[in-house]
Write a protein that binds this DNA or RNA. Structure first.
Lengths: 125, 125, 125, 125
DNA sequence: GTGGTCTAGACCACC
DNA sequence: GTGGTCTAGACCACA
C-alpha cells in the first residue's frame, strides 16, 4: 500500500480499515489483523498502526478484547456509514454545489458523467 | 472568519481570496488588502496572510508590486477557474461518485437537493 | 460475569472470589471451583483463572492440595478483612474525603445516600 | 513529580493537569505549558506529554490553537467536575458503601474520621 | 516558537 | 501470542 503525502499515515490506515469494513471484506464481529501483522504488511511501524486502531476504537468502530486482539464492533458498518453521511451531506455536498455554480457546470453534465463512471467501474474483478 | 480545524489556515485564507476573485468582489487588476490589513481583519498573524499571498503568487493569481502591494493578475479569474475545474473533474468528482454509491444516494436525490440549494442561496444580500 | 475494561481480568476474578469468601458463599475450608470449571463459567481462558488463584494463594487466602484442588484457608475471612481494612483506611478513605471536598458533597448527603443504599440492597434473594 | 508504577504516566499527567484546572492554578482559557516545556519539567519524553494533552483534548477539556499552543477550554472546570461526579456517584460511592458493610464500619466512624481529615488538611502552607 | 507524525526499539502486563 | 506504554530522536508544517 502506498500512502499519500499530505495526509497522516495513521489516518490513511484507519480509512483503509474503514473501507474494508464498509465493503464487507472484514466481516462484522471478526478479528482484524493484529497490530504487528498489519504493520509488517503495510511496511510501517507498529506504533503507526496502533494509532490508527486507537482512532477507530475512539469512534467505537472496533473494540479490543484484552490479550486477544481487535474486533469489529457489531454495528461498525452503520456507524461508519452514519459518520460518512453526516460529513457528506453537511460539508461535501454544499461545497460540491458551490463548485457547480462557480464553474458553471450543469446538473445534466454531472448526470452524464455519473453514468459513464458507473459503466467504467461497475464490472470489477 | 472561522477556520476549519483540519486545514492549514493559510490555505483557507488563500481559498477565501480565490472566492473573492471568482465572485468578482475583488475586481481584475485591483489592489487587494494589504497583508497587515487582512491579518487584523481575520485575526491572524500577518505571517500567515503572507504565506497565503505567496501561495497565490506562486500560482500567478496575484502579483506583487514592491512597496505598493499585491494586485490581482489580469487573467486571474480564468486561471483560478482552470485550476479548480481540473481539480474538480480529476479528483473531487470521482470521489463524489464513489460516495454516492457507498452511501446509496441516488442522482435524483442530488438533483432535488441541488434545486433546494439554489433557492436557499440565490437571494444574497 | 462482565469485566471492567481498565482492570486486569485476573484481578477482577480474584476480587470476585474474595467476595464469595467474605460473604460466606464459599465456606471456610471448602474446596473452591476448579480452574477449568470457573473458567468455563466466567467465559475466560483457564490461564486467567489460574493467575487469579495464584494471586490469592500468594496472599495465603487459598491453599492448593496437589491433584485435588484449591481450598479456602482456615483463616481466610480474617485475612481478607485485614487486607481490605488496611487498604480502605490507608488509601480509599483519604481519597474519598478529597473527592467529597472537590465535588462539594456534604457528609449529610452521603449519609442519606447510604440509607437509601441499605434499603435497596438489604433484601437479597 | 513522581509517578505511580501501576498507572500509565500519560494518564497521571492528564490527572495532574486536571487537578491544576480544578484548583484554579491554571485559569480558565489560559495557555497551558507547551508540550516540550512540561516534558522537561516532569522529566518525561515529549511524546508522553503529547498523549496526555491528546487525551484531555478528546475530553474537550483543553483546545489547541494551531502553532500557538494548548488552552484551557472555557467550560473545562464544569466538564471535569461532571466527569468526576459521574464516576464518583456511579462507581466509587456504591463500592464505598459495600466496603462499609463488609468491613463493619459505621457511618459515625466515617464522620469522625472526616472531621479529623478536615482539621489535618485544611491549614495547608 | 508551537504541535503533529513517524521510526526504531525496548519492556511490560495480560490472555 | 496480544495490546499498551515509553523513550530517544528525527523531520515537518504552521504561526
Amino acid at each position: 500500500m502506498e500512502f499519500r503525502e499530505n495526509e497522516a499515515i495513521y489516518l490513511q490506515i484507519a480509512a483503509y480499515a474503514g473501507e474494508n469494513i464498509l465493503l464487507g471484506k472484514w466481516g462484522q464481529e471478526d478479528k482484524i489483523p493484529s497490530v504487528r501483522e498489519l504493520a509488517s504488511d503495510l511496511q510501517v511501524n507498529p506504533n503507526t498502526v496502533m494509532r490508527a486502531y486507537e482512532f477507530l476504537q475512539g469512534k467505537e468502530v472496533i473494540v479490543n478484547k484484552r490479550g486477544i486482539g481487535f474486533f469489529i464492533a457489531s454495528d461498525a458498518k452503520q456507524k461508519l456509514k452514519a459518520y460518512r453521511k453526516e460529513d457528506f451531506l453537511g460539508h461535501e455536498l454544499p461545497e460540491f454545489f458551490r463548485n457547480l455554480l462557480l464553474l458553471e457546470i450543469t446538473m445534466d453534465e454531472i448526470k452524464t458523467r455519473f453514468e459513464t463512471f458507473i459503466v467504467e467501474n461497475n464490472q470489477p474483478k
